[in-house]
């Protein structure tokens, strides 16, 4: 199997080629599923790079998320038996904050974080601060990513950061993302970082996790 070609197919968002190659891996030798998964993850890096360069945009990232889900689905038997390196994944919490029901941006970020070695605990949408605190404690998480589209999300993000601090979780790093966030909003919220692009979110979280 040419794993470079597989990464390129993923990077090119060429679903048919990617699917054929993954099916070939699984029909020939399931034990190579982890290598195939790694190639798909490299493909996601290519996608992130093309987004940063302006060639791809949000619709392409949504489609990429679908392809990644499909890849995991095809490879899952091989990943379970062969070991996918999931043990090494860094846990982190991701959600859309309270009173905001938007999930598309969050889901894009999730697929890119997962492709970059994070075990993303996705709490969903309209998530209350106390739910975030509980998940952080339960999973011993050190990174939290908060998403929102509505302007009121800034207030919910601020309440979430305050709840984390009130619970004594001062060592947890928080990044906020979505349309209303900005440098000023980041200061207002008390977050450590902010991002408009999923690639920046990935880069920041990787730096925090040391991976």
């Amino acid at each position: 199997m040419d794993y470079e070609a597989l990464a390129e197919a993923m990077g090119d968002l060429d679903e048919d080629t990617m699917t054929d190659m993954l099916n070939e891996v699984m029909s020939e030798d399931k034990s190579h599923a982890p290598e195939a998964m790694e190639a798909c993850q490299k493909g996601m890096d290519i996608i992130g790079q093309r987004f940063e360069e302006g060639e791809y945009f949000v619709g392409d990232l949504i489609y990429a998320g679908e392809l990644m889900t499909k890849a995991v689905d095809i490879l899952k038997d091989g990943l379970v038996s062969g070991g996918s390196g999931e043990n090494a994944a860094v846990p982190m919490v991701l959600c859309t904050v309270k009173d905001d029901l938007h999930d598309i941006g969050k889901n894009i970020v999730r697929s890119m974080l997962e492709a970059n070695g994070f075990n993303v605990i996705d709490l969903g949408i309209d998530v209350a601060p106390e739910t975030v605190v509980e998940a952080v404690k339960k999973n011993n998480v050190k990174i939290v990513a908060l998403s929102g589209v509505l302007t009121l999300a800034i207030d919910s993000m601020k309440k979430t950061v305050e709840a984390l601090k009130a619970a004594g979780l001062d060592d947890v790093k928080v990044i906020i993302g979505g349309a209303p966030v900005s440098e000023e909003a980041c200061k207002e919220v008390g977050a450590d970082e902010w991002a408009h692009s999923p690639q920046k979110t990935v880069d920041v979280c990787k730096a925090w996790a040391g991976i």
Binding site: L13, E15, V58, G59, D60, I62, Y63, E66, I104
Partner: peptide
């Protein structure tokens, strides 16, 4: 919708 259009434009 956003997801459906994203998919169809590529597919």
């Amino acid at each position: 919708g956003i997801k459906g259009l994203s998919y169809l434009m590529r597919r």
